[in-house]
Measured scan of single mutants.
Amino acid sequence: MASQGTKRSYEQMETDGERQNATEIRASVGKMIDGIGRFYIQMCTELKLSDYEGRLIQNSLTIERMVLSAFDERRNKYLEEHPSAGKDPKKTGGPIYKRVDRKWMRELVLYDKEEIRRIWRQANNGDDATAGLTHMMIWHSNLNDTTYQRTRALVRTGMDPRMCSLMQGSTLPRRSGAAGAAVKGVGTMVMELIRMIKRGINDRNFWRGENGRKTRSAYERMCNILKGKFQTAAQRAMMDQVRESRNPGNAEIEDLIFLARSALILRGSVAHKSCLPACVYGPAVASGYDFEKEGYSLVGIDPFKLLQNSQVYSLIRPNENPAHKSQLVWMACNSAAFEDLRVLSFIRGTKVSPRGKLSTRGVQIASNENMDAMESSTLELRSRYWAIRTRSGGNTNQQRASAGQISVQPAFSVQRNLPFDKPTIMAAFTGNTEGRTSDMRAEIIRMMEGAKPEEMSFQGRGVFELSDERAANPIVPSFDMSNEGSYFFGDNAEEYDN
Protein backbone atom coordinates (compact mmCIF):
# COMPACT_ATOMS: atom_id res chain seq x y z
CA MET A 1 0.00 0.00 0.00
CA ALA A 2 1.36 3.39 -0.99
CA SER A 3 0.66 5.13 2.31
CA GLN A 4 2.50 2.45 4.27
CA GLY A 5 5.10 4.99 5.38
CA THR A 6 2.55 7.14 7.18
CA LYS A 7 1.21 4.26 9.24
CA ARG A 8 2.77 2.69 12.30
CA SER A 9 3.84 -0.88 11.69
CA TYR A 10 1.77 -3.48 13.46
CA GLU A 11 4.54 -4.27 15.85
CA GLN A 12 4.37 -0.64 16.97
CA MET A 13 0.61 -0.93 17.39
CA GLU A 14 1.19 -4.17 19.24
CA THR A 15 3.56 -2.51 21.69
CA ASP A 16 2.05 0.99 21.92
CA GLY A 17 5.41 2.26 20.67
CA GLU A 18 6.22 5.56 19.07
CA ARG A 19 8.33 5.30 15.92
CA GLN A 20 10.98 2.68 16.51
CA ASN A 21 13.54 1.10 14.26
CA ALA A 22 13.30 -2.58 13.34
CA THR A 23 15.59 -3.74 16.14
CA GLU A 24 13.67 -1.81 18.79
CA ILE A 25 10.39 -3.16 17.46
CA ARG A 26 11.70 -6.73 17.56
CA ALA A 27 12.88 -6.19 21.13
CA SER A 28 9.60 -4.70 22.36
CA VAL A 29 7.54 -7.46 20.74
CA GLY A 30 9.97 -9.95 22.31
CA LYS A 31 9.45 -8.31 25.69
CA MET A 32 5.69 -8.72 25.29
CA ILE A 33 6.11 -12.44 24.47
CA ASP A 34 8.46 -12.88 27.46
CA GLY A 35 5.79 -11.42 29.73
CA ILE A 36 3.10 -13.79 28.46
CA GLY A 37 5.50 -16.72 28.85
CA ARG A 38 6.51 -15.81 32.42
CA PHE A 39 2.86 -15.33 33.38
CA TYR A 40 1.98 -18.74 31.95
CA ILE A 41 4.80 -20.49 33.84
CA GLN A 42 3.65 -18.89 37.09
CA MET A 43 0.01 -19.89 36.49
CA CYS A 44 1.03 -23.50 35.81
CA THR A 45 2.86 -23.48 39.15
CA GLU A 46 -0.18 -22.00 40.95
CA LEU A 47 -2.44 -24.63 39.41
CA LYS A 48 0.09 -27.44 40.02
CA LEU A 49 0.04 -28.52 36.38
CA SER A 50 2.43 -31.17 35.10
CA ASP A 51 4.52 -30.34 32.03
CA TYR A 52 2.05 -32.23 29.81
CA GLU A 53 -1.00 -30.55 31.38
CA GLY A 54 0.68 -27.17 30.94
CA ARG A 55 1.06 -27.85 27.22
CA LEU A 56 -2.64 -28.69 26.84
CA ILE A 57 -4.23 -26.04 24.64
CA GLN A 58 -7.53 -26.17 26.57
CA ASN A 59 -5.69 -25.24 29.80
CA SER A 60 -3.91 -22.47 27.94
CA LEU A 61 -7.24 -21.02 26.75
CA THR A 62 -8.68 -21.06 30.29
CA ILE A 63 -5.62 -19.29 31.72
CA GLU A 64 -5.62 -16.70 28.91
CA ARG A 65 -9.35 -16.09 29.45
CA MET A 66 -8.84 -15.61 33.18
CA VAL A 67 -6.29 -12.85 32.75
CA LEU A 68 -8.33 -11.14 30.02
CA SER A 69 -11.37 -11.20 32.28
CA ALA A 70 -9.33 -9.90 35.24
CA PHE A 71 -8.32 -6.84 33.19
CA ASP A 72 -11.72 -6.21 31.57
CA GLU A 73 -12.41 -3.01 33.51
CA ARG A 74 -15.70 -2.12 31.88
CA ARG A 75 -17.20 -5.53 32.42
CA ASN A 76 -15.85 -5.70 35.97
CA LYS A 77 -17.48 -2.37 36.75
CA TYR A 78 -20.73 -3.52 35.15
CA LEU A 79 -20.71 -6.76 37.17
CA GLU A 80 -20.18 -4.84 40.41
CA GLU A 81 -23.11 -2.51 39.61
CA HIS A 82 -25.45 -5.25 38.31
CA PRO A 83 -24.83 -8.24 40.57
CA SER A 84 -26.19 -11.46 39.09
CA ALA A 85 -27.00 -14.54 41.14
CA GLY A 86 -24.16 -16.98 41.59
CA LYS A 87 -21.52 -14.79 39.91
CA ASP A 88 -18.83 -13.24 42.05
CA PRO A 89 -17.69 -10.09 40.21
CA LYS A 90 -14.32 -10.22 41.96
CA LYS A 91 -13.48 -13.76 40.88
CA THR A 92 -12.55 -15.39 37.60
CA GLY A 93 -11.91 -18.98 36.62
CA GLY A 94 -12.69 -21.81 34.27
CA PRO A 95 -12.10 -25.48 33.53
CA ILE A 96 -8.61 -26.89 34.10
CA TYR A 97 -7.95 -30.39 32.79
CA LYS A 98 -5.74 -32.84 34.66
CA ARG A 99 -4.67 -36.40 34.01
CA VAL A 100 -5.78 -38.59 36.93
CA ASP A 101 -5.50 -42.41 36.89
CA ARG A 102 -5.00 -42.56 33.11
CA LYS A 103 -8.12 -40.43 32.59
CA TRP A 104 -8.74 -36.75 31.90
CA MET A 105 -10.61 -34.94 34.67
CA ARG A 106 -12.15 -31.48 34.58
CA GLU A 107 -11.60 -29.26 37.59
CA LEU A 108 -13.26 -25.84 37.89
CA VAL A 109 -10.87 -23.31 39.41
CA LEU A 110 -11.71 -19.89 40.84
CA TYR A 111 -9.26 -17.06 41.56
CA ASP A 112 -9.47 -13.50 42.79
CA LYS A 113 -9.12 -11.19 39.81
CA GLU A 114 -6.84 -9.06 41.97
CA GLU A 115 -4.52 -12.05 42.43
CA ILE A 116 -4.43 -12.77 38.68
CA ARG A 117 -3.66 -9.11 37.97
CA ARG A 118 -0.83 -9.27 40.50
CA ILE A 119 0.69 -12.36 38.84
CA TRP A 120 0.36 -10.78 35.37
CA ARG A 121 1.98 -7.50 36.44
CA GLN A 122 4.75 -9.34 38.23
CA ALA A 123 5.50 -11.30 35.04
CA ASN A 124 5.55 -8.01 33.11
CA ASN A 125 7.92 -5.99 35.33
CA GLY A 126 5.08 -4.28 37.15
CA ASP A 127 3.34 -2.99 34.00
CA ASP A 128 -0.25 -3.63 32.94
CA ALA A 129 1.29 -4.82 29.65
CA THR A 130 -1.80 -4.10 27.57
CA ALA A 131 0.01 -5.21 24.42
CA GLY A 132 0.31 -8.75 25.79
CA LEU A 133 -3.40 -8.80 26.65
CA THR A 134 -4.31 -7.64 23.14
CA HIS A 135 -2.02 -10.29 21.71
CA MET A 136 -4.01 -12.99 23.51
CA MET A 137 -7.28 -11.44 22.33
CA ILE A 138 -6.06 -11.64 18.73
CA TRP A 139 -5.09 -15.30 19.21
CA HIS A 140 -8.62 -16.04 20.48
CA SER A 141 -10.06 -14.06 17.58
CA ASN A 142 -7.96 -15.97 15.03
CA LEU A 143 -9.09 -19.25 16.59
CA ASN A 144 -12.74 -18.18 16.36
CA ASP A 145 -12.25 -17.11 12.73
CA THR A 146 -10.95 -20.58 11.90
CA THR A 147 -13.59 -22.45 13.87
CA TYR A 148 -16.85 -20.64 13.14
CA GLN A 149 -18.50 -19.14 10.11
CA ARG A 150 -20.39 -15.99 11.07
CA THR A 151 -23.46 -16.66 8.91
CA ARG A 152 -26.00 -15.51 11.45
CA ALA A 153 -24.18 -12.30 12.30
CA LEU A 154 -23.84 -11.45 8.60
CA VAL A 155 -27.50 -12.10 7.85
CA ARG A 156 -28.65 -10.08 10.87
CA THR A 157 -26.88 -6.98 9.59
CA GLY A 158 -28.21 -7.46 6.06
CA MET A 159 -25.01 -8.83 4.55
CA ASP A 160 -24.55 -11.98 2.48
CA PRO A 161 -23.09 -15.01 4.33
CA ARG A 162 -20.85 -15.61 1.32
CA MET A 163 -18.94 -12.48 2.30
CA CYS A 164 -17.37 -14.33 5.24
CA SER A 165 -13.82 -13.70 3.96
CA LEU A 166 -14.28 -10.08 5.10
CA MET A 167 -15.06 -11.03 8.70
CA GLN A 168 -11.61 -11.37 10.24
CA GLY A 169 -11.58 -10.23 13.87
CA SER A 170 -15.37 -10.16 14.18
CA THR A 171 -15.22 -11.55 17.73
CA LEU A 172 -12.50 -9.18 18.99
CA PRO A 173 -13.59 -7.19 22.04
CA ARG A 174 -14.01 -3.44 21.64
CA ARG A 175 -11.07 -2.76 23.92
CA SER A 176 -8.50 -4.36 21.63
CA GLY A 177 -6.97 -1.01 20.64
CA ALA A 178 -4.96 -0.12 17.53
CA ALA A 179 -3.50 -3.61 17.16
CA GLY A 180 -7.04 -5.02 17.20
CA ALA A 181 -8.31 -2.48 14.66
CA ALA A 182 -5.46 -3.38 12.30
CA VAL A 183 -6.52 -7.03 12.05
CA LYS A 184 -10.24 -6.40 11.61
CA GLY A 185 -11.60 -7.20 8.16
CA VAL A 186 -13.70 -4.79 6.08
CA GLY A 187 -16.85 -6.80 6.86
CA THR A 188 -16.19 -6.63 10.59
CA MET A 189 -15.92 -2.84 10.51
CA VAL A 190 -19.03 -2.58 8.32
CA MET A 191 -20.96 -4.79 10.72
CA GLU A 192 -19.93 -2.71 13.74
CA LEU A 193 -21.00 0.48 11.95
CA ILE A 194 -24.33 -0.97 10.81
CA ARG A 195 -25.14 -2.08 14.35
CA MET A 196 -24.41 1.43 15.54
CA ILE A 197 -26.57 3.07 12.85
CA LYS A 198 -29.44 0.67 13.60
CA ARG A 199 -29.32 1.64 17.26
CA GLY A 200 -29.51 5.26 16.19
CA ILE A 201 -32.57 4.53 14.06
CA ASN A 202 -34.34 2.74 16.91
CA ASP A 203 -33.28 4.98 19.78
CA ARG A 204 -33.91 8.69 19.28
CA ASN A 205 -31.44 9.73 21.94
CA PHE A 206 -28.54 7.66 20.67
CA TRP A 207 -26.80 10.58 18.93
CA ARG A 208 -28.02 13.24 21.38
CA GLY A 209 -26.72 14.88 24.51
CA GLU A 210 -23.41 14.36 26.28
CA ASN A 211 -23.33 10.62 25.52
CA GLY A 212 -24.32 11.28 21.92
CA ARG A 213 -21.16 13.31 21.42
CA LYS A 214 -19.04 10.36 22.54
CA THR A 215 -21.10 8.07 20.33
CA ARG A 216 -20.58 10.38 17.37
CA SER A 217 -16.82 10.52 17.81
CA ALA A 218 -16.70 6.71 18.12
CA TYR A 219 -18.73 6.49 14.88
CA GLU A 220 -16.34 8.82 13.05
CA ARG A 221 -13.31 7.00 14.41
CA MET A 222 -14.66 3.65 13.17
CA CYS A 223 -15.41 5.22 9.77
CA ASN A 224 -11.81 6.42 9.56
CA ILE A 225 -10.45 2.98 10.48
CA LEU A 226 -12.55 1.44 7.72
CA LYS A 227 -11.59 4.18 5.25
CA GLY A 228 -7.92 3.42 5.95
CA LYS A 229 -8.45 -0.19 4.94
CA PHE A 230 -9.67 0.69 1.44
CA GLN A 231 -7.07 1.04 -1.30
CA THR A 232 -9.01 2.98 -3.97
CA ALA A 233 -9.96 6.65 -3.99
CA ALA A 234 -13.61 5.99 -4.83
CA GLN A 235 -14.09 3.63 -1.90
CA ARG A 236 -12.45 6.15 0.42
CA ALA A 237 -14.57 9.01 -0.91
CA MET A 238 -17.67 6.97 -0.21
CA MET A 239 -16.47 6.41 3.37
CA ASP A 240 -16.10 10.18 3.77
CA GLN A 241 -19.77 10.50 2.79
CA VAL A 242 -20.81 7.91 5.36
CA ARG A 243 -18.71 9.56 8.06
CA GLU A 244 -19.98 13.08 7.40
CA SER A 245 -23.66 12.13 7.34
CA ARG A 246 -25.66 14.40 9.68
CA ASN A 247 -28.01 11.67 10.76
CA PRO A 248 -26.81 8.21 9.75
CA GLY A 249 -29.64 5.97 8.57
CA ASN A 250 -30.64 3.48 5.89
CA ALA A 251 -28.81 5.31 3.11
CA GLU A 252 -25.55 4.85 5.04
CA ILE A 253 -26.33 1.19 5.69
CA GLU A 254 -26.86 0.71 1.94
CA ASP A 255 -23.56 2.46 1.18
CA LEU A 256 -21.70 0.33 3.73
CA ILE A 257 -23.10 -2.94 2.37
CA PHE A 258 -22.18 -1.78 -1.14
CA LEU A 259 -18.64 -1.07 0.05
CA ALA A 260 -18.39 -4.44 1.81
CA ARG A 261 -19.39 -6.23 -1.40
CA SER A 262 -16.93 -4.18 -3.41
CA ALA A 263 -14.17 -5.35 -1.04
CA LEU A 264 -14.62 -8.91 -2.32
CA ILE A 265 -12.83 -7.76 -5.47
CA LEU A 266 -11.19 -4.43 -4.54
CA ARG A 267 -9.75 -5.87 -1.35
CA GLY A 268 -9.02 -3.88 1.76
CA SER A 269 -5.69 -4.01 3.55
CA VAL A 270 -6.04 -6.05 6.69
CA ALA A 271 -3.10 -6.98 8.92
CA HIS A 272 -2.25 -10.60 9.71
CA LYS A 273 -0.31 -11.56 12.81
CA SER A 274 0.73 -14.94 14.06
CA CYS A 275 -0.42 -14.95 17.66
CA LEU A 276 0.27 -18.24 19.44
CA PRO A 277 -1.32 -19.71 22.57
CA ALA A 278 0.38 -18.90 25.88
CA CYS A 279 1.33 -22.58 26.29
CA VAL A 280 3.78 -22.12 23.38
CA TYR A 281 5.48 -19.05 24.88
CA GLY A 282 5.64 -20.46 28.43
CA PRO A 283 7.80 -23.54 27.75
CA ALA A 284 10.05 -21.50 25.40
CA VAL A 285 10.74 -18.97 28.16
CA ALA A 286 11.14 -21.80 30.69
CA SER A 287 13.79 -23.40 28.49
CA GLY A 288 15.84 -20.22 28.82
CA TYR A 289 15.04 -18.49 25.52
CA ASP A 290 15.17 -14.70 25.90
CA PHE A 291 12.66 -13.22 23.45
CA GLU A 292 13.53 -9.62 24.27
CA LYS A 293 17.25 -10.18 23.70
CA GLU A 294 16.78 -12.29 20.56
CA GLY A 295 13.98 -10.11 19.17
CA TYR A 296 10.69 -11.40 17.78
CA SER A 297 8.31 -10.52 14.96
CA LEU A 298 4.70 -11.57 14.47
CA VAL A 299 4.90 -11.28 10.70
CA GLY A 300 8.13 -13.04 9.76
CA ILE A 301 9.82 -16.38 10.32
CA ASP A 302 9.78 -16.27 14.15
CA PRO A 303 6.35 -17.85 14.80
CA PHE A 304 7.16 -20.61 12.29
CA LYS A 305 10.44 -21.41 14.05
CA LEU A 306 8.73 -21.38 17.43
CA LEU A 307 5.98 -23.77 16.28
CA GLN A 308 8.61 -26.00 14.64
CA ASN A 309 10.07 -26.67 18.10
CA SER A 310 6.94 -26.70 20.25
CA GLN A 311 4.93 -29.56 21.70
CA VAL A 312 1.25 -28.65 22.13
CA TYR A 313 -1.44 -31.15 23.06
CA SER A 314 -5.20 -31.05 22.73
CA LEU A 315 -8.12 -32.98 24.14
CA ILE A 316 -9.86 -34.95 21.39
CA ARG A 317 -13.52 -35.97 21.49
CA PRO A 318 -14.38 -39.58 20.62
CA ASN A 319 -15.31 -39.01 16.95
CA GLU A 320 -12.84 -36.26 16.12
CA ASN A 321 -9.84 -36.57 13.83
CA PRO A 322 -6.61 -35.36 15.50
CA ALA A 323 -5.12 -34.36 12.13
CA HIS A 324 -8.15 -32.16 11.48
CA LYS A 325 -7.90 -30.61 14.94
CA SER A 326 -4.26 -29.85 14.13
CA GLN A 327 -5.20 -28.12 10.88
CA LEU A 328 -7.73 -25.94 12.70
CA VAL A 329 -5.17 -24.77 15.26
CA TRP A 330 -2.39 -24.43 12.65
CA MET A 331 -4.58 -22.07 10.61
CA ALA A 332 -5.44 -20.07 13.73
CA CYS A 333 -1.78 -19.77 14.72
CA ASN A 334 -0.97 -18.41 11.27
CA SER A 335 -3.96 -16.06 11.13
CA ALA A 336 -5.00 -17.79 7.93
CA ALA A 337 -8.73 -18.50 8.19
CA PHE A 338 -9.51 -16.59 4.99
CA GLU A 339 -6.40 -17.40 2.99
CA ASP A 340 -6.50 -19.47 -0.19
CA LEU A 341 -6.28 -23.15 0.80
CA ARG A 342 -3.90 -23.90 -2.07
CA VAL A 343 -1.40 -21.37 -0.71
CA LEU A 344 -1.80 -22.86 2.77
CA SER A 345 -1.38 -26.44 1.54
CA PHE A 346 1.90 -25.49 -0.13
CA ILE A 347 3.27 -23.68 2.93
CA ARG A 348 2.19 -26.36 5.36
CA GLY A 349 3.35 -29.21 3.16
CA THR A 350 0.16 -31.21 3.73
CA LYS A 351 -3.26 -30.71 2.21
CA VAL A 352 -5.37 -28.11 3.98
CA SER A 353 -9.08 -28.95 3.65
CA PRO A 354 -12.22 -26.81 3.76
CA ARG A 355 -13.94 -26.42 7.14
CA GLY A 356 -16.90 -28.57 6.17
CA LYS A 357 -14.64 -31.55 5.45
CA LEU A 358 -12.99 -31.49 8.87
CA SER A 359 -14.15 -33.97 11.51
CA THR A 360 -13.55 -31.66 14.42
CA ARG A 361 -15.53 -29.27 16.54
CA GLY A 362 -14.07 -26.25 18.31
CA VAL A 363 -11.05 -26.49 20.58
CA GLN A 364 -12.93 -25.53 23.73
CA ILE A 365 -14.82 -28.21 25.62
CA ALA A 366 -18.26 -27.28 26.97
CA SER A 367 -18.90 -27.78 30.69
CA ASN A 368 -21.61 -30.36 30.02
CA GLU A 369 -19.47 -32.60 27.81
CA ASN A 370 -18.63 -36.01 29.20
CA MET A 371 -14.93 -36.40 30.06
CA ASP A 372 -14.94 -40.21 30.27
CA ALA A 373 -14.15 -40.87 26.64
CA MET A 374 -11.77 -37.89 26.19
CA GLU A 375 -8.37 -38.68 24.75
CA SER A 376 -5.53 -36.29 24.07
CA SER A 377 -3.11 -36.06 21.18
CA THR A 378 -0.24 -33.95 19.88
CA LEU A 379 -1.16 -31.04 17.62
CA GLU A 380 0.97 -31.05 14.45
CA LEU A 381 1.72 -27.33 14.05
CA ARG A 382 4.89 -27.51 11.95
CA SER A 383 5.22 -26.21 8.40
CA ARG A 384 7.25 -27.14 5.33
CA TYR A 385 8.00 -23.52 4.34
CA TRP A 386 7.51 -20.09 5.84
CA ALA A 387 6.19 -16.92 4.23
CA ILE A 388 5.86 -13.27 5.15
CA ARG A 389 2.45 -12.17 6.43
CA THR A 390 0.78 -9.44 4.39
CA ARG A 391 -1.45 -6.52 5.12
CA SER A 392 -2.27 -5.68 1.55
CA GLY A 393 -5.35 -7.26 0.07
CA GLY A 394 -3.40 -8.01 -3.11
CA ASN A 395 -4.78 -7.18 -6.53
CA THR A 396 -7.61 -9.22 -7.79
CA ASN A 397 -8.47 -12.12 -9.89
CA GLN A 398 -11.05 -14.49 -11.08
CA GLN A 399 -11.11 -18.14 -10.21
CA ARG A 400 -13.59 -20.96 -9.98
CA ALA A 401 -15.36 -20.18 -6.73
CA SER A 402 -17.74 -21.97 -4.46
CA ALA A 403 -21.25 -21.99 -3.14
CA GLY A 404 -19.92 -20.90 0.24
CA GLN A 405 -17.16 -18.35 0.50
CA ILE A 406 -16.75 -16.35 -2.72
CA SER A 407 -13.46 -14.57 -2.13
CA VAL A 408 -10.31 -14.76 -0.01
CA GLN A 409 -8.34 -12.33 2.16
CA PRO A 410 -4.65 -13.16 1.70
CA ALA A 411 -2.63 -13.77 4.86
CA PHE A 412 0.69 -14.45 3.14
CA SER A 413 2.64 -12.39 0.69
CA VAL A 414 2.90 -15.15 -1.92
CA GLN A 415 2.38 -14.92 -5.69
CA ARG A 416 -0.92 -16.39 -6.85
CA ASN A 417 -4.18 -15.82 -8.67
CA LEU A 418 -6.70 -14.62 -6.12
CA PRO A 419 -9.91 -16.60 -6.34
CA PHE A 420 -13.28 -14.89 -6.46
CA ASP A 421 -16.45 -15.70 -8.28
CA LYS A 422 -16.88 -12.61 -10.43
CA PRO A 423 -20.34 -13.32 -11.90
CA THR A 424 -21.74 -14.02 -8.43
CA ILE A 425 -20.21 -10.88 -6.96
CA MET A 426 -21.15 -8.63 -9.89
CA ALA A 427 -24.75 -9.89 -9.85
CA ALA A 428 -25.15 -8.05 -6.56
CA PHE A 429 -24.34 -4.74 -8.25
CA THR A 430 -27.15 -4.46 -10.77
CA GLY A 431 -29.16 -1.29 -11.01
CA ASN A 432 -28.63 0.45 -7.73
CA THR A 433 -26.36 3.34 -8.69
CA GLU A 434 -28.64 6.27 -7.99
CA GLY A 435 -28.51 8.61 -5.03
CA ARG A 436 -25.81 10.90 -3.72
CA THR A 437 -23.01 8.36 -4.07
CA SER A 438 -23.91 7.42 -7.66
CA ASP A 439 -20.68 8.64 -9.28
CA MET A 440 -18.54 6.82 -6.73
CA ARG A 441 -20.62 3.67 -7.07
CA ALA A 442 -20.29 3.76 -10.84
CA GLU A 443 -16.53 4.23 -10.54
CA ILE A 444 -16.21 1.32 -8.07
CA ILE A 445 -18.27 -0.98 -10.30
CA ARG A 446 -16.14 0.01 -13.29
CA MET A 447 -12.97 -0.93 -11.40
CA MET A 448 -14.47 -4.24 -10.33
CA GLU A 449 -15.48 -5.09 -13.86
CA GLY A 450 -11.98 -4.27 -15.02
CA ALA A 451 -10.35 -6.74 -12.63
CA LYS A 452 -8.49 -9.15 -14.92
CA PRO A 453 -8.43 -12.91 -14.40
CA GLU A 454 -4.89 -13.37 -15.65
CA GLU A 455 -3.24 -10.87 -13.29
CA MET A 456 -0.95 -12.32 -10.67
CA SER A 457 -1.10 -10.97 -7.17
CA PHE A 458 2.05 -10.46 -5.06
CA GLN A 459 4.18 -10.78 -8.20
CA GLY A 460 7.42 -12.68 -7.61
CA ARG A 461 6.77 -13.14 -3.90
CA GLY A 462 7.51 -16.62 -2.73
CA VAL A 463 7.81 -18.88 0.26
CA PHE A 464 11.10 -19.71 1.97
CA GLU A 465 12.86 -22.75 3.38
CA LEU A 466 12.89 -22.71 7.18
CA SER A 467 16.70 -22.55 7.02
CA ASP A 468 16.45 -19.31 4.99
CA GLU A 469 15.97 -16.87 7.86
CA ARG A 470 16.97 -13.81 5.84
CA ALA A 471 14.38 -14.60 3.15
CA ALA A 472 17.14 -14.61 0.53
CA ASN A 473 15.87 -17.32 -1.84
CA PRO A 474 12.17 -17.06 -2.62
CA ILE A 475 10.50 -20.18 -3.99
CA VAL A 476 7.49 -19.26 -6.11
CA PRO A 477 5.05 -22.06 -5.34
CA SER A 478 2.97 -24.10 -7.74
CA PHE A 479 -0.66 -24.73 -6.86
CA ASP A 480 -2.96 -27.61 -7.58
CA MET A 481 -5.80 -25.71 -9.23
CA SER A 482 -8.11 -28.72 -9.09
CA ASN A 483 -8.41 -28.18 -5.34
CA GLU A 484 -10.88 -25.86 -3.72
CA GLY A 485 -9.59 -22.41 -2.73
CA SER A 486 -12.12 -21.40 -0.09
CA TYR A 487 -12.08 -22.67 3.48
CA PHE A 488 -15.77 -22.08 4.19
CA PHE A 489 -16.72 -23.79 0.94
CA GLY A 490 -20.46 -24.66 0.77
CA ASP A 491 -20.00 -24.98 4.41
CA ASN A 492 -21.57 -26.35 7.56
CA ALA A 493 -19.27 -24.95 10.25
CA GLU A 494 -20.88 -24.30 13.60
CA GLU A 495 -22.13 -20.83 14.34
CA TYR A 496 -20.18 -18.68 16.80
CA ASP A 497 -22.15 -18.12 20.01
CA ASN A 498 -20.90 -15.80 22.71
Rank of each mutant, 00 (worst) to 15 (best):
Asn76Val: 15
Gln4Trp: 09
Gly462Arg: 14
Leu328His: 11
Pro83Asn: 13
Gly132Pro: 05
Met43Ser: 04
Asn125Met: 13
Asp88Arg: 00
Gln398Val: 09
Thr232Ile: 12
Gly349Ile: 02
Tyr313His: 13
Arg19Gln: 02
Ser269Asn: 08
Asn125Cys: 14
Ala251Asn: 07
Lys7Ser: 00
Met13Asp: 14
Ala472His: 13
Met66Gln: 11
Tyr313Gln: 13
Ile301Asn: 05
Phe230Leu: 15
Met43Phe: 10
Lys293Ala: 10
Thr62Ile: 02
Asp72Ser: 08
Arg118Trp: 10
Arg106Ala: 08
Phe346Leu: 14
Asn224Lys: 14
Ala182His: 15
Pro410Arg: 00
Ala181Cys: 07
Ala286Asn: 12
Gln409Asn: 11
Gly209Arg: 07
Arg441Glu: 05
Leu264Ile: 11
Glu80Asn: 11
Arg156His: 11
Gly228Thr: 13
Met32Thr: 11
Val100Lys: 02
Glu484Gly: 03
Asn224Arg: 04
Met136Lys: 01
Asn247Phe: 07
Leu166Gln: 15
Asn309Leu: 12
Met481Lys: 12
Cys279Asn: 12
Asn142Phe: 09
Ser402His: 15
Ser383Leu: 00
Ser383Gly: 13
Met222Arg: 01
Asp145Pro: 03
Gly282Glu: 06
Glu495Asp: 15
Ile63Gln: 06
Thr146Met: 02
Ser353Gly: 05
Cys223Phe: 10
Ser467Leu: 13
Asn395His: 15
Arg389Gln: 02
Asn205Val: 11
Gln399Phe: 13
Thr396Phe: 11
Asp421Thr: 11
His140Tyr: 11
Ser165Ile: 02
Asn395Phe: 03
Phe338Gly: 12
Ile316Lys: 02
Ala323Leu: 14
Leu266Met: 11
Gln168Trp: 03
Glu449Cys: 09
Thr396Gly: 05
Ser326Ala: 07
Glu465Gln: 08
Lys31Gly: 13
Lys103Gly: 10
Val242Cys: 14
Thr62Asp: 01
Gln415Met: 13
Ala271Arg: 07
Leu298His: 08
Tyr487Leu: 01
Glu115Met: 09
Glu114Met: 12
Gly462Tyr: 09
Leu256Trp: 02
Arg199His: 11
Gly349Glu: 12
Ser486Tyr: 12
Ile96Thr: 11
Ile57Glu: 02
Pro474Ile: 01
Asp468Ala: 02
Leu358Met: 11
Met13Gln: 01
Met189Gly: 10
Asn309Glu: 00
Ser310Tyr: 15
Gly126Val: 06
Leu166Trp: 01
Glu443Val: 12
Val329Asp: 08
Leu108Lys: 08
Arg355Thr: 10
Asn397Ser: 05
Val363Trp: 00
Gly35Thr: 09
Val280Ser: 03
Lys91His: 02
Arg106Thr: 05
Leu307Pro: 03
Met440Pro: 02
Tyr487Gly: 00
Ala271Ser: 13
Val352Ala: 11
Trp139Val: 10
Val299Gly: 03
Thr433Ala: 08
Gly282Ala: 15
Gly158Met: 14
Thr188Phe: 03
Ala387Val: 10
Asn224Pro: 09
Ile475Glu: 00
Gln398Asn: 04
Ser269Pro: 13
Lys229Gln: 12
Gly490Glu: 11
Lys325Pro: 02
Asn319Lys: 15
Gln399Arg: 15
Asn59Ala: 07
Ala442Val: 14
Arg267Leu: 04
Glu494Gln: 11
Glu465Leu: 00
